[in-house]
Design a protein around this nucleic acid. Structure first.
Lengths: 351, 351
DNA sequence: CTGAAAGCGCTTACAG
DNA sequence: CTGAAAGCGCTTACAG
């Protein structure tokens, strides 16, 4: 490993004081052109950059952000993260990514940790700001210890939470509206003649699931469509869950002709289940994904889905956070309208 | 924001010197039980943790690692990363994730940056170690500026590179063997009676593609199977690429009865293309994925694939890096044997 | 425009 | 077992 070269060596070799080196580095105070050039040459020669630890100690900032997600393996979060990282990078920030719960390893072995532990860890790192996407914040019932930890975190460092608003916590909450997409999808299916529409995937007790389910029930009622308990099967957000949920609905004989799936992974699993029961999409059952992960044009059948424009969310959230860090006035939260992209998987109801 | 509480306040409130507080914090030097308890109480009261910037300045370590990937949105990298992050976390390290090239935004707008920029940035952060997975290291021709930057990085901080070995660079290289899987897959297809086997996806000029292609050609030769130029169509690693590549092969009339696809995304795209030409898998064409991303059991058809055990790689790589950081002797690189998991998509050749 | 000096929050010999 | 002091690598008033 190379010896770390410091501002002292640069100063020595340039024949100036460290204060002057610091000044040409930061450009805050005028330095005479000739000394500036001399110093700059030495800096370049060694590829010198100031030690951020020392800088951070004085400036009280690390130019580092923390991002906490439950599962980076989930396309929703990896897409979100890549937007966040890119935007942060543009503004000179690095990001520490904490994957709280669902690493294949930790999941398999049951050795996962509480998110609160990560909150503390990220605080210890003295990051300049934190983004929390998903996790316990999405639960309908949130533990006291989580709330307390979030409160402590938010009162120490600017924090943006992607999730629904919690009272008395000084975070910026960005909550995505869930109802409109569901309503659009169901109306569309109804217009195709479907009268018995099911819902698969998602997890009971999770806010996004519950709110979509309630929009689902409300819309069925509004349109005068059948609403039977066996039309709904939840479980979780992955392929296996879509498979199990759809299989359950089919096997208990629920006469659905269309299915709303929580997201593309759930849709893929549902597709597999439908196929295992010798039924086809869209021939026997119409399928719509409520949260686009992949480009539906490349799936078989091409998947009709709600594009919730998750890709815009990352940039938006970073802007909120950086504004807050820089003490700019808080922006109003905007909502991205979902878009129903109609493809093959949603056909007319068979008569 | 809360005022930052420092070791000085803790010392003051405990009635001891800051040296003593530091000692109970680190437990390196014995402290009398009663003062220890007194100090510990004050620490707990304020949830005090030492400022890592100050610590890092003295200890010359940040307990932070840098991980550089080209596209966290790609399941290969997100799985790898989640293992890395988890293992690092277990050992008390945080990780800064740099996504160098393919954020949807940067990709669309063409405003991506050179990986070298990220190398410098990660160095500036004074991380304790770096893992580089993919990117330019995978190209057959690597630019001088990249090599120089990698050299500088590696001579400043321990670095593990997932990619093939480059001469004269003090990194630990972990190179995954590519041939065996391809050989297994082709032998299996041959045993099923397939005589004309194609290859889709991957990008020319990328090491992993070229080495798989050469294993492909070698095996065809060895088994005395036809090897025509139009049996191969490369492009890239995503669904759209699999679609275009497979369509190209089908439309130029190549009489293949089986297809090897670079990975699951390419397979999905190929499936779509095959279906668009009114052909079916495995009825008309057998399909094997050379790199498992998803659980093939939930795809339709269930996808036969090579499981290269990418999920083990992350843990292994972290162990290599942490050993190096701690000055332990370098381990021998191990190779994970690929496993051919046979499912529905690979059927016998039609007579 | 430039330098000497204080100070950011810690750890660790060095004495006692 | 414990404290006073030096020092990690910087930035920034404060003088000049």
């Amino acid at each position: 490993m190379d010896k770390n070269i410091t501002i002292i060596q640069i100063a020595k070799e340039s024949g100036v004081s460290i204060a002057t080196v610091s000044r040409v580095l930061n450009g805050t105070v005028p330095v005479s052109p000739k000394t500036k050039e001399r110093v700059q040459n030495v800096i370049n020669k060694y590829h010198y950059t100031p030690n951020p630890l020392a800088q951070g100690l004085i400036l009280k900032q690390t130019k580092t952000l923390g991002v906490i997600v439950p599962d980076i393996t989930n396309p929703y979060f990896s897409t979100l993260f890549s937007e966040i990282e890119w935007s942060a990078h543009q503004s000179g920030y690095s990001v520490i990514l904490c994957n709280t719960a669902f690493s294949a390893v930790s999941y398999a072995s049951g050795e996962r940790e509480k998110e609160e532990t990560y909150f503390q860890m990220i605080l210890d790192k003295k990051v300049d700001g934190v983004i929390i996407a998903g996790g316990q914040i999405d639960l309908c019932e949130i533990s006291d210890s989580y709330i307390e930890a979030l409160k402590r975190l938010a009162s120490t460092v600017p924090a943006v939470v992607i999730g629904r608003k919690l009272p008395d916590i000084p975070c910026t909450f960005v909550n995505k509206e869930n109802d409109n997409g569901i309503i659009m999808a169901i109306r569309y299916l109804a217009s195709l003649g479907h009268k018995r529409i099911g819902f698969v995937g998602g997890e009971r007790g999770v806010y996004i699931t519950e709110s979509r389910l309630s929009a689902y029930h409300r819309t069925l009622l509004e349109l005068g469509l059948e609403d039977e308990p066996e039309f709904v099967a939840t479980s979780d957000y992955y392929m296996a869950d879509g498979y199990n949920a759809a299989l359950h609905i089919l096997d208990c004989g629920a006469p659905v002709t269309a299915l709303l799936a929580m997201n593309d992974n759930v849709s893929l699993g549902a597709l597999r289940a439908i196929s295992d029961r010798q039924l086809s999409v869209p021939g026997d059952i119409a399928l719509i994904s409520c949260d686009r992960f992949y480009d539906g044009d490349y799936l078989t059948p091409r998947l009709t889905s709600l594009d919730r424009h998750n890709d815009m969310l990352g940039r938006y959230v970073i802007k909120l956070l950086l504004d807050e860090i820089q003490g700019l006035p808080a922006q109003d939260a905007i909502d991205f309208l979902p878009e129903l992209v109609i493809r093959e998987s949603s056909g007319p109801a068979r008569v």
